[in-house]
């Protein structure tokens, strides 16, 4: 028990890394996803093709393989980042595809009248997206985006296999050192994960109510 009390602060500290990775990757993949979704519905065919290739390839690859290719591939072309940055990049590439597909579904669900009205007032394609389509699409996809980001939160655990000392990596190290408190440490880690997952679920439910468009 004393060992567990000693271990807990280290574990909580490791969750800070997990949360950092989650929030940064959520932000970057949101940016990537918005740009990709905009390209996917653009009038320029090559942009649409580029995004559908990106989405098809990365979405159908296990995140582990995306990590492996990032970690082993980029140094070969002269790009050397820290493990944390590589993890951020791999998570962004992977999660970006899910954000893009979710947003595209949201764009498709927008009433045609909205788009027609926007274009009738003389807005250009980019203005239509920026002022009319995307604000509505983003609001309508809050629930599926919540699932994407909660999955991202859990996916950060895979970074532990690539040298990032986030929650799972730290837990595994601790378990290897203090074999007497394996169950306690793993149980504590599990509880913290579930607590955060539930908390994020609540936060997104609140956001959904705030963002809801009553038609």
């Amino acid at each position: 028990m004393n060992e567990l009390i000693g271990a807990l602060p280290i574990l909580l500290h490791a969750f800070v890394t997990t949360l950092e990775l989650t929030f940064l990757a959520a932000l970057t993949s949101l940016v990537v996803g918005i740009i990709a979704a905009a390209m996917r519905v653009s009038p320029v065919p090559p942009l649409r093709w580029a995004v559908s290739v990106y989405v098809r390839f990365v979405r159908n690859t296990p995140l582990t393989i995306v990590f492996f290719i990032t970690v082993f591939g980029l140094p070969q072309v002269g790009i050397n980042f820290s493990f944390f940055a590589f993890a951020l990049l791999a998570l962004t590439l992977y999660t970006g595809t899910f954000v893009a597909e979710t947003l595209r579904a949201g764009i498709q669900a927008i009433p045609i009248g909205q788009i027609e009205a926007a274009r009738a007032t003389g807005l250009t394609f980019i203005q239509v997206l920026r002022y009319v389509v995307l604000p509505q699409a983003l609001r309508s996809v809050v629930p599926p985006l919540a699932s994407v980001f909660i999955a991202l939160f859990k996916n950060t655990s895979i970074a532990s296999a690539f040298g990032v000392a986030e929650a799972i990596g730290t837990m595994t190290n601790m378990v290897n050192v203090h074999s007497t408190i394996v169950l306690w440490v793993m149980g504590a880690t599990a509880i913290i994960y579930i607590a955060f997952a539930l908390l994020f679920g609540r936060a997104f439910a609140w956001l959904e109510r705030k963002a809801l468009i009553v038609r």
Binding site: K154, N155, S157, L183, M186, Y193, I194, F196, A197, L198
Partner: peptide, 23 residues
Amino acid sequence: VELGRGLPVLLSMLFLFLAFPLA
């Protein structure tokens, strides 16, 4: 359901791998 959705698959796997034999 909440347990299954909230836990990273990797953690469940490690739990079965490391803690299950001990328990």
